[in-house]
Nucleic acid binder design. Structure first.
Length: 116
DNA sequence: ACACTGACTTGAA
DNA sequence: TTTCAAGCCAGTG
């Protein structure tokens, strides 16, 4: 099996994020074994605009802040997408983050890493 | 080919 | 407690 680049791995995890749940760049990076590559995760999201299966709006920073909303169309698209999934967002800050947070390290089987 | 930037996070001062 | 710096990988000038 050909080794996947960081981007592809990020996408593979991102598309697993359940409806109405969110995760963080760092959580994905850490799951991929590169905890310090959180920036790359965000960068991958930027490139994911070509991919329909990548719910970039479900990926926020660790504080639950919609730091990437500025990269979406319009000014509030990211928030609207989240709210349409039942995620409460106030002033770019996801509410009840501790409840809807989805940690790939916990929710996904670890062997998925080799299966990517 | 080199340097800088970028949707982040963590640790040290 | 708050502020600063480093690390990670890819893309762009």
């Amino acid at each position: 099996m050909a080794e996947m680049g960081f981007f592809d791995k990020v996408y593979a995890v991102a598309i697993q994020i359940p409806f109405g749940r969110v995760t963080s760049y760092g959580a994905i990076a850490k799951y991929l074994g590169a905890a310090k590559s959180a920036r790359m995760v965000g960068w991958a999201m930027n490139a994911s605009h070509n991919m329909e299966d990548v719910p970039a709006h479900r990926v926020v920073n660790k504080k639950g802040l919609l730091t990437g909303k500025h990269h979406f169309e319009g000014t509030n698209l990211m928030q609207q997408l989240l709210e349409s999934e039942g995620v409460e967002v106030v002033d770019n800050q996801i509410q009840q983050l501790d409840v809807i947070f989805w940690d790939p390290q916990v929710e996904l089987p670890e062997y998925l890493g080799d299966n990517l």
